[in-house]
Amino acid sequence: MTGTTGPAGTTGAGSVRRGRGRPSRRETEAAPATRDRILEAAREEFSERGYEKTSVRGIAKAAGVDSALVHHYFGTKEQVFEAAIALAVAPALSAPDALAEGPRDTVGERLTRFFFGVWENPVTRAPLLAIVRSAVNNDTAAAVFRKLLVAQLLRRISGQLGLPDAELRAELAAAQLVGVAMLRYVIKVEPVASADMEQLVARLAPVVQGHMTNP
């Protein structure tokens, strides 16, 4: 008789029992939408709780899926964090393209304006806050952030400069911008937090320019 349950909880020939910890066929068939939902939930959880207090189980609950499905698509919490970061920083990773569009003597202003343009946009600001808050408080999250920042952004920028110590120059410029972003968007120190963006660009662009191109 098909579909009957045999000894010790086994099933008959007409049904296939799903192993513990494995997602169901229905769950895996909805892969693209489910994966996006998990990433969205992960960004929100990391933003609200930070890396330390966020768990795979919490992400799964927020996404409305089983935690096994989170592991199925992404693996460990670190890998979920890295996937969420990669998607969140995608707009910022086009910075090298922005740098290429114009003369070298305006690279500082273009990079500064581009960087704060990403932060000022509410859509891209929320995931960036999650990344920065997590990286500040956790070594694992910081390592993931560094890998993406250095490998995908800073080295691409330094490669376009064609100057000695190009990678160091790019990192110093990034330190200047990220430091101000921390004060403005994370710690919210006044008057930096409420300063006009054009004022920030006017103050910071020459410093960034100096790091990037001065002898």
Rank of each mutant, 00 (worst) to 15 (best):
Thr5Tyr: 13
Gly6Val: 04
Gly9Pro: 08
Thr10Gln: 15
Thr10Ala: 15
Thr10His: 15
Thr11Glu: 11
Gly12His: 08
Gly14Val: 03
Gly14Phe: 10
Val16Gly: 03
Arg17Trp: 09
Gly19Tyr: 06
Gly21Phe: 10
Gly21Trp: 08
Gly21Asp: 12
Arg22Ile: 10
Arg22Leu: 13
Arg22Val: 12
Pro23Leu: 06
Ser24Thr: 15
Ser24His: 10
Arg26Cys: 02
Arg26Tyr: 08
Thr28Ile: 15
Thr28Tyr: 00
Glu29Phe: 05
Ala30Leu: 13
Ala30Asp: 15
Ala31Trp: 08
Ala31Pro: 01
Ala33Val: 14
Ala33Cys: 03
Thr34Phe: 01
Asp36Ile: 00
Arg37Glu: 13
Ile38Pro: 05
Glu40Arg: 10
Ala41Gln: 03
Ala42Ser: 11
Arg43Leu: 00
Arg43Met: 09
Glu44Ser: 09
Ser47His: 12
Glu48Ser: 11
Glu48Val: 13
Gly50Phe: 10
Tyr51Lys: 09
Glu52Cys: 01
Lys53Cys: 03
Ser55Asn: 08
Ser55Lys: 07
Val56Trp: 00
Arg57Asn: 11
Arg57Cys: 06
Arg57Ser: 15
Arg57Gln: 12
Arg57Lys: 08
Ile59Gly: 01
Ile59Trp: 02
Ala60Gln: 01
Lys61Gly: 09
Ala62Tyr: 03
Ala62Leu: 07
Ala63Asn: 03
Ser67Val: 04
Leu69Gly: 04
Val70Ser: 02
Val70Gln: 03
His72Ser: 07
His72Met: 03
Thr76Asn: 11
Thr76Gly: 12
Thr76His: 07
Thr76Ile: 11
Glu78Pro: 01
Glu78Ile: 07
Gln79Ser: 14
